[in-house]
């Protein structure tokens, strides 16, 4: 009797299977176009570069290209790029969360919140060439702020050592798309913080900063880390903004690589593959760090 009872549900589960078997292969056909496209225009081109980084012109294996990355004229731009990306990503995260918290949690009118989210959607996409023009028009030699500073306050920004075509200038410019991106990503996460958590913490005697340190920030941590990695990659690969802002006078990696592909500067194309490979490695490392930290921070999630 127990046997019969045990068999019946299994019966039900297996009967449709023979009918589905031909579909088992068929259902992969549905995703084939996408997978082929992704392979041809995303994955293989990238792998191609990776392979090229380890090849001699006649196809043999070499580490010479990679070794070339450590020549000072290549290593230095890499270092500047890493610093630039790290600084803009960190500042973007920090300022972004402050602004998002001010609008979602700070008791400001609700209209401001919608306005800021819409504006962030625009500003995070207002990157590249036009953004550089906007900053040239503002902080460049004849820019609005530069002129006002000189004529109204008698302060010469140039005299103070400020130059838009510099690390600081690039940082200021990149933040214009980094901060809004952070706001867009972190606002839903802030909305996910339940009112009960704050009230429970308060009734248990916690101050506002204790609540943030012990509850809110740890809960937000995975989203924060993810955004940090994303902002890092976003800034590391940005070419157009830097290009339009500085011409090619500032040595950051994407600009070096751009010049290399155009064939203007470096003569050795295989060093170009190595540079591109180096870029993948660095954004890759940023993401691996992110994934590792995230799995550690997410023990309490399902």
């Amino acid at each position: 009797m127990t046997d019969a009872a045990a068999i019946r549900p299994q019966d039900r589960a297996t009967t449709p299977r023979p009918r589905r078997l031909p579909q088992g292969l068929l259902k992969w056909v549905g995703v084939a176009p996408f997978l082929i496209f992704a392979a041809l225009f995303l994955i293989l081109p990238t792998l191609n570069i990776v392979v090229g980084a380890f090849q001699t012109p006649d196809g043999g294996f070499t580490l010479a290209n990679i070794a070339g990355l450590f020549r000072p004229e290549i290593a230095r731009p890499f270092w500047i790029s890493i610093q630039l990306s790290f600084v803009t990503a960190t500042l973007g995260c920090l300022i972004g969360i402050i602004l998002a918290a001010a609008v979602t949690r700070g008791g400001l009118p609700k209209g401001l919140r919608d306005g800021m989210l819409t504006f962030s959607g625009v500003a995070s996409n207002f990157a590249g060439v036009p953004l550089a023009f906007a900053f040239i028009a503002t902080l460049g030699r004849l820019g609005l702020v530069t002129v006002i500073a000189k004529e109204v306050f008698g302060v010469s920004l140039m005299g103070l050592g400020f130059n838009l075509i510099s690390f600081l200038g690039l940082t200021l410019t990149y933040l214009y798309f980094q901060i809004p991106l952070m706001i867009l990503i972190i606002t839903p996460a802030l909305d996910g913080l339940k009112r009960e958590w704050r009230e429970a913490a308060e009734s248990l005697g916690a101050t506002g900063s204790q609540y943030w340190r012990m509850v809110a920030l740890p809960i937000l941590w995975p989203s924060l880390l993810g955004t940090l990695a994303l902002l890092f990659a976003n800034s590391f690969g940005a070419v157009a903004t830097a290009m339009a802002l500085t011409g090619s006078s500032l040595s950051i990696v994407p600009i070096i690589l751009f010049a290399q592909i155009r064939g203007d500067v470096l003569q050795d194309p295989y060093l170009g593959y190595a540079i591109a490979f180096g870029m993948i490695v660095i954004t890759g490392i940023a993401n691996v760090i992110y994934i590792v930290l995230r799995t550690r921070a997410e023990r309490w999630l399902k």
């Binding site: 339940k194 009960e196 958590w197 009230e199 429970a200 913490a201 308060e202 009734s203 248990l204 005697g205 916690a206 101050t207 012990m214 509850v215 740890p218 809960i219 309490w300 999630l301």
Partner: peptide, 19 residues
Amino acid sequence: PNSRNIGMMFQAYALFPNL
């Protein structure tokens, strides 16, 4: 609230999920 020394229990989901 944090200086009243009062214990409170909420409807649901008020435990800190990260602890």
